[in-house]
Design a protein around this nucleic acid. Structure first.
Lengths: 222, 222
DNA sequence: AAAACAATTTAGATAAGCCTAAAAATATAT
DNA sequence: ATATATTTTTAGGCTTATCTAAATTGTTTT
């Protein structure tokens, strides 16, 4: 069994290692966990001793199979708790992160399996991120954003890249929530802002930054 | 804010201090937390510095108002989580303790208030222990046990003194659950075992030890 | 009231996780 | 290829919470 801190390191390494077989740098981990590089080095040695990461001095870290399994399980727990908080305890999607960050470290397989069943085996959390199943299988989004659409194309919002509360509250205010159907009407070359139509209702213009952080599922034209 | 460890010390002191204004000994705390007396002394100094307990060398510890408030809140959280686990996640009453012991340290007022509402403001946990309200008010059981009944008297089981899983499973097996109506038929002087009738159904004999650990609400005779 | 026993505290260590400052290795630029 | 800059590691400390062993205080017994 590992400590909260170790679990947080494993999770950080997992989320930072986008590509397979690519090691994560000491500094990147330090920044992610807002700690110092020297502290990270200490922990990397410890995790390597426990066979949770592959680590060579100056070469960064990569999760072993065992380490990856633990990291994915933490993420599974985090996202299941988020679903519980939003669907049953009336939390808003911009309020769940910190509490879920604590709850994800509770250790009980029975608890998580029961929670999963109670929630009806959800596949996505409130931000559209996939929830790994009990075996650790993760369905990865294709990660197409509104930015990737051309004029006339449409899609359904399925997730957000950025999780910052301010961004989430902006979306809430603009009624750009998961499930919303949008169509690109116009792209302004000047700043790459995009005029869209939502669910046959209102039209609005979103910035390039917003567009890049809104994942969508492309709709085929009829 | 205090650490998990500090919270556990406060909780231990609270549960050990039965009488008001009576201090708890270092050894008692050490035994409760399965740690050494010297470790307890260290922590008592720390808690005293933080004004969470009154502590004089060699005189034991007593919670301050502030310390008591924290302890009661931990107990509130523990018991609310137990209700959630039993009522919604299919845990048995003998399975909840360890998980609740972890969950009780999650820090979020919104979480606990929402959970309380979700559970419909329960007043007792699955073992019949009272759940303190948001302001810290605790309804104390009168703590009459089956042992205090005389032949012919009856009552409803409202709680258990002993929480050991083995005892809880014994009760489950004997169908002596909370809410069960029992009537004392006979007391065997030999070993003080008691023959009882449950809910107009089966008769059974329980040991003195069992009787002493079963809290009841006495029924007035009609 | 002194001796014996029990409870508590102090002293000195240890492990985890963090820090700063300095040294070493790696990467980049000229 | 050498100098410079960046990244990473090492060395040495700090804090929290624990421990063992020894010293001290409190309580009981005779």
């Amino acid at each position: 069994m590992q400590s909260f801190t170790e679990e947080n390191y494993l999770k950080a390494i997992y989320t930072l290692s986008t590509a397979e077989n690519q090691s994560v740098s000491t500094n990147a981990i330090a920044e992610k966990l807002t700690t110092k590089a020297s502290s990270v080095t200490d922990m990397l040695k410890k995790l390597a001793d426990k066979k949770l990461i592959h680590y060579e001095k100056y070469q960064g870290a990569e999760l072993t199979r065992k380490g990856k399994k633990i990291a994915i399980n933490i993420i599974r727990k985090h996202r299941l708790w988020e679903v519980f908080l939003v669907n049953h305890l009336n939390f808003k999607w911009d309020e769940v992160h910190d509490v879920a960050e604590e709850l994800e470290h509770i250790n009980s397989e029975k608890l998580i399996d029961s929670l999963d069943r109670f929630l009806n085996f959800p596949q996505f959390d409130p931000h559209g991120d996939p929830i790994p199943d009990k075996e650790g299988k993760v369905y990865h989004h294709k990660e197409i954003s509104v930015k990737d659409l051309r004029v006339g194309e449409s899609g359904i919002i399925v997730g957000v890249k950025e999780h910052h509360p301010d961004f989430l509250r902006y979306l809430e205010n603009a009624e750009l929530l998961l499930g919303t159907n949008i169509k690109v009407l116009k792209i302004f070359e000047w700043d790459n802002s995009i005029k869209i139509k939502c669910d046959k209702k209102q039209e609005l213009t979103i910035s390039e930054k917003v567009a890049g952080n809104l994942y969508i599922k492309k709709m085929l034209k009829k």
